[in-house]
């Protein structure tokens, strides 16, 4: 195993674009070298942002490290890239179970079972969780304590504005510090920013733009594009660090996409 890791490390050093990072990170994960595995998988996912398996690997490593938020983000990315990814549905079912969201857990497990009907462990897991849901008013001994649903709560507590490229508000609201609704003005002011960002990254050969983070005094903003036609702005005070705001934005993007899908 160690020899394999050394050989794969050498191969990756010689060709940083090599897909060997998938096998290397998995080998490191199995050996318990989670930080090293995370570094390798993270760099690989950075090089291949559209490769679902890279994000799946990243998610599994983060789950092993106990980073539920990170794993959730990575598996959500996997499903965006590959909606029928069995591992991602299983992983998200596990996270939902851990956080006490049993309904969501069953939904992911059911989808996983549709994708792998021969997997009897999935059917028994669904059965078990359904029975827990029935007796939820009296939690069974040994059932997991529902963890505070911070990610969802954090998103709900974040002023968020979804608008289209023409500057029309679609959903949400942003207020100035004096309480005046500034949603329309913000949407109008930022309507062309996506095109500017797209042009800048194209001309500077930086690829496709993903996010714009802005620090402005006591406030941090993060701007995203849930779809090519829409922009999403989230806003929080500086007490929410930029890294966490980025994660909140990830979830807000997922919610916005879901909302737009339901609308379509």
């Amino acid at each position: 195993m160690t020899d394999d890791i050394a050989a794969m490390t050498l191969e990756l050093a010689q060709d940083p674009n090599s897909l060997v990072f998938l096998r290397l990170a998995e080998a490191l994960r199995r050996k318990g070298q989670l930080d090293a595995a995370l570094t390798v998988a993270g760099r690989g996912a950075g090089r291949y942002p559209e490769l679902a398996d890279a994000h799946d690997l990243l998610a599994r490593i983060q789950a092993d490290k106990g980073d539920g938020d990170g794993a959730f983000d990575a598996w959500t990315t996997v499903l965006r890239l590959a909606p029928d990814h069995l591992g991602a549905h299983k992983g998200l079912a596990f996270i939902a179970y851990r956080t006490g969201d049993l309904g969501r857990s069953v939904r992911h497990l059911t989808r996983a079972l549709e994708l792998a009907p021969a997997d009897t462990s999935l059917a028994s897991a669904i059965e078990r969780i359904r029975s827990m849901m029935v007796s939820r008013t009296e939690p069974a001994a040994g059932a997991p304590e529902p963890a505070p649903a911070e990610p969802r709560a954090a998103v709900d507590a974040t002023p968020t504005l979804l608008f289209d490229q023409q500057g029309r508000v679609l959903r949400g609201k942003l207020e100035r510090s004096d309480g005046v609704d500034a949603s329309d003005a913000v949407a109008a002011a930022l309507a062309g920013v996506s095109r500017e960002a797209e042009r800048a990254t194209r001309m500077l050969e930086l690829g496709e733009w993903r996010a714009i983070a802005i620090e402005s005094g006591a406030v941090n903003y993060e701007l995203r594009t849930p779809t090519s036609e829409t922009l999403l702005l989230v806003m929080r005070g500086r007490e929410v660090p930029a890294g966490r705001l980025a994660r909140i934005a990830d979830k807000a993007v997922d919610q916005a996409r879901q909302w737009l899908e339901e609308l379509a």
């Binding site: 930086l206 733009w209 993903r210 714009i212 983070a213 620090e215």
Partner: peptide, 8 residues
């Protein structure tokens, strides 16, 4: 301000 893209 930080503009993040797939390639830089």
């Amino acid at each position: 301000m930080l503009l993040q893209a797939t390639g830089g």
